[in-house]
Lab assay of single mutants.
Amino acid sequence: SEYETMLTEIMSMGYERERVVAALRASYNNPHRAVEYLLTGIPG
């Protein structure tokens, strides 16, 4: 799925699956924002 592709691409940058899933959830599946959250911390 498109979601799995995003997940895999972000994980390939060296992040753990659960952190990527949390970041995508926080960003409403916006991959650019999710990466930003992984770099700066997930808000909330």
Rank of each mutant, 00 (worst) to 15 (best):
S1W: 13
S1E: 12
S1A: 13
S1N: 12
S1V: 12
S1L: 13
S1Y: 12
S1F: 12
S1D: 13
S1Q: 13
S1C: 15
E2K: 11
E2V: 11
E2I: 11
E2L: 12
E2W: 14
E2H: 12
E2C: 13
E2N: 11
E2P: 10
Y3R: 03
Y3E: 04
Y3L: 06
Y3H: 05
Y3K: 03
Y3W: 11
Y3P: 02
Y3D: 04
Y3F: 10
E4A: 08
E4F: 10
E4N: 09
E4T: 08
E4V: 09
E4D: 10
T5V: 12
T5H: 12
T5I: 13
T5Y: 11
T5R: 15
T5S: 12
T5A: 14
T5F: 11
M6H: 06
M6G: 02
M6W: 11
M6S: 04
M6P: 01
M6N: 06
M6V: 07
M6Q: 04
L7F: 04
L7I: 15
L7Y: 03
L7G: 00
L7A: 02
L7V: 15
L7H: 01
L7N: 00
L7S: 01
L7K: 02
L7R: 01
T8Q: 15
T8K: 15
T8H: 14
T8P: 02
T8S: 13
T8V: 12
T8L: 15
T8D: 10
T8I: 14
T8Y: 14
T8R: 15
E9N: 12
E9Y: 15
E9C: 15
E9M: 15
E9A: 14
E9V: 13
E9H: 13
I10K: 00
I10G: 01
I10M: 07
I10S: 00
I10W: 04
I10A: 02
I10D: 00
I10Y: 04
I10R: 00
I10E: 00
M11P: 00
M11V: 07
M11R: 02
M11F: 04
M11I: 09
M11L: 06
M11E: 04
S12Q: 11
S12R: 12
S12L: 12
S12H: 08
S12M: 12
M13N: 03
M13S: 03
M13F: 06
M13V: 03
M13H: 05
M13L: 13
M13I: 05
M13R: 06
M13G: 03
M13P: 00
M13W: 06
M13T: 02
M13Y: 07
G14S: 02
G14M: 03
G14L: 05
G14D: 02
G14E: 02
G14I: 04
G14K: 02
Y15N: 01
Y15H: 05
Y15S: 01
Y15T: 01
Y15Q: 01
Y15A: 01
Y15D: 01
Y15P: 01
Y15E: 01
E16Y: 05
E16R: 05
E16F: 06
E16N: 08
E16A: 10
E16T: 13
E16V: 07
E16S: 14
E16Q: 08
E16M: 06
R17E: 05
R17L: 09
R17H: 05
R17D: 02
R17Y: 12
R17G: 03
R17I: 06
R17A: 04
R17V: 05
R17N: 03
R17K: 08
E18Y: 09
E18V: 07
E18H: 10
E18I: 07
E18L: 07
E18K: 07
E18C: 14
E18W: 14
E18F: 08
E18M: 08
E18A: 10
E18R: 06
R19W: 09
R19A: 15
R19D: 14
R19G: 04
R19N: 08
R19F: 09
R19Y: 09
R19I: 12
R19K: 11
R19E: 13
R19V: 12
V20S: 02
V20Y: 04
V20C: 04
V20Q: 01
V20G: 02
V20P: 00
V20T: 03
V20A: 07
V20W: 03
V20F: 04
V20M: 02
V21L: 10
V21Y: 04
V21H: 05
V21P: 00
V21E: 12
V21D: 05
V21M: 10
A22W: 07
A22L: 09
A22Y: 05
A22I: 09
A22Q: 11
A22D: 09
A22K: 07
A22E: 13
A22G: 04
A22T: 06
A23I: 03
A23F: 04
A23E: 01
A23C: 05
A23L: 03
A23P: 00
L24W: 02
L24F: 03
L24E: 00
L24H: 00
L24K: 00
L24T: 00
L24Q: 00
L24C: 06
L24R: 00
L24P: 00
L24Y: 02
L24A: 01
R25I: 10
R25Q: 10
R25H: 10
R25K: 14
R25P: 00
R25Y: 08
R25F: 08
R25C: 11
R25A: 14
R25S: 08
A26W: 09
A26M: 10
A26V: 09
A26F: 08
A26T: 05
A26S: 05
A26I: 10
A26H: 09
A26P: 00
A26N: 06
A26Q: 07
A26L: 11
A26G: 04
S27D: 01
S27P: 00
S27N: 07
S27V: 07
S27C: 10
S27F: 08
S27A: 15
S27G: 07
Y28I: 07
Y28P: 03
Y28R: 14
Y28E: 15
Y28H: 15
Y28D: 15
Y28L: 14
Y28T: 06
Y28M: 15
Y28K: 15
Y28Q: 15
N29R: 04
N29G: 14
N29A: 05
N29M: 10
N29D: 07
N29P: 04
N29T: 03
N29H: 06
N29Q: 06
N29F: 11
N29K: 04
N29L: 08
N29I: 03
N30P: 01
N30H: 05
N30K: 04
N30W: 04
N30Y: 03
N30L: 04
P31D: 02
P31G: 05
P31C: 11
P31E: 05
P31M: 14
P31R: 10
P31N: 03
P31F: 15
P31K: 14
P31S: 06
P31Y: 15
H32D: 14
H32Y: 12
H32I: 15
H32F: 13
H32E: 15
H32P: 06
H32G: 11
H32V: 15
H32R: 12
R33F: 08
R33P: 02
R33V: 15
R33K: 15
R33M: 15
R33A: 10
R33T: 11
R33E: 08
R33Y: 08
R33C: 11
A34T: 04
A34E: 01
A34N: 01
A34S: 02
A34C: 04
V35L: 15
V35N: 02
V35Q: 05
V35H: 05
V35C: 08
V35W: 06
V35T: 05
V35P: 01
V35G: 02
V35R: 07
V35I: 15
E36M: 11
E36I: 11
E36H: 13
E36W: 13
E36N: 06
E36F: 13
E36T: 07
E36Q: 12
Y37D: 02
Y37E: 03
Y37H: 05
Y37M: 13
Y37L: 13
Y37G: 02
L38P: 00
L38R: 00
L38Y: 02
L38S: 00
L38F: 03
L38V: 02
L38H: 01
L38T: 01
L38G: 01
L38K: 00
L39I: 12
L39P: 00
L39V: 10
L39N: 10
L39T: 09
L39R: 14
L39D: 06
L39K: 14
L39G: 05
L39Q: 13
L39Y: 05
L39A: 09
L39F: 06
L39E: 11
L39H: 07
T40V: 09
T40H: 15
T40G: 11
T40E: 10
T40C: 14
T40A: 14
T40S: 13
T40K: 12
G41N: 10
G41R: 08
G41E: 10
G41I: 09
G41D: 08
G41H: 11
I42N: 09
I42Q: 09
I42L: 12
I42W: 11
I42K: 08
I42S: 09
I42M: 11
I42P: 08
I42R: 08
I42T: 09
I42D: 09
P43A: 10
P43T: 10
P43H: 09
P43N: 09
P43E: 09
P43I: 11
P43R: 08
P43M: 11
P43V: 10
G44R: 09
G44M: 12
G44T: 13
G44A: 13
G44V: 13
G44Q: 13
G44F: 12
G44C: 13
G44E: 13
